[in-house]
Design a protein around this nucleic acid. Structure first.
Length: 224
DNA sequence: AACCAGGAGAGAG
DNA sequence: CTCTCTCATGGT
């Protein structure tokens, strides 16, 4: 069907610029990325709010905080025992590497490997941190991306591998400095489209992808 | 009341 | 490499 870039342009025209990631600091981006693993953003917001009130939104504070305090604060985000541990190991990493500014000087692939070696940082979380906290051109793939690309016929399966889909996008939109904003917006638009808009089945006429879109493997019958 | 949400690790095959 | 199980809360 349509190319990756065409999908991006349609989504951008329809929804407008999103200015992601919703956070005040790079560290908050990272914490949010870890907390939102298989968890709705609504629950993550409560956890982030708790962390702010306890002034635990810095690597130093998280390392100092005792286990129970941290676990209680992030409990609304689910998997709180694992995630508390993940936040500790990531904070530990940040302190040893000397902070964001120092990390930014390293190459994207080097950073990606370092991030992936941290317990609790998988591919999506690593790419989210690279793109939104470290300003590196690394496209983020998630369940929405796989679902959407399958529905509009870019892929022929929803269980396509992460790295394959990532390279598919980066093949058409090269990982260059000038494309960082496109990567940021594209991922944001995919999430917004799939999470909010695409759920309104009855109003499918307003879907920017219209006839290209499949909902639950059923082709949308709305007229283009 | 089952099912899902902006996944990741560990283990088995 | 791909599959399966586990981890946990809150909203439909």
């Amino acid at each position: 069907m349509s190319s990756v870039i065409e999908v991006y342009n349609k989504l951008l025209k329809f929804y407008g610029k999103q200015n992601w990631w919703p956070a005040e600091t790079p560290f908050e981006v990272c914490v949010g990325a870890i907390l939102t693993q298989n968890t709705s953003w609504k629950n993550v917001e409560k956890a982030l709010e708790n962390l702010k009130e306890l002034k635990l939104l810095s690597p130093e504070a998280i390392l100092k905080a005792d286990k129970e305090t941290l676990e209680t604060a992030i409990r609304p985000a689910g998997f709180f025992r694992q995630k508390a541990s993940y936040l500790k190991s990531f904070s530990d990493f940040l302190m040893e590497e000397g902070g964001f500014e120092k990390l930014k000087r390293e190459r994207t692939q080097t950073l990606r490997k370092k991030l992936l070696s941290i317990k609790g940082i998988g591919r999506e979380t690593a790419d989210s941190i690279l793109l939104y906290a470290l300003e590196k051109p690394s496209f983020v793939v998630d369940a929405y991306t796989k679902r959407l690309f399958y529905r509009i016929g870019i892929t022929d399966s929803e269980s396509i591998s992460y790295e394959y889909l990532k390279s598919l996008v980066e093949g058409q939109i090269p990982p260059l400095e000038e494309n960082i904003e496109i990567y940021k917006e594209f991922h944001a638009l995919i999430v917004v489209h799939c999470k909010e808009k695409c759920r309104r089945k009855p109003k499918c006429q307003e879907c920017p992808l219209r006839k290209d879109c499949l909902y639950d493997r059923i082709k949308c019958t709305a007229s283009p």
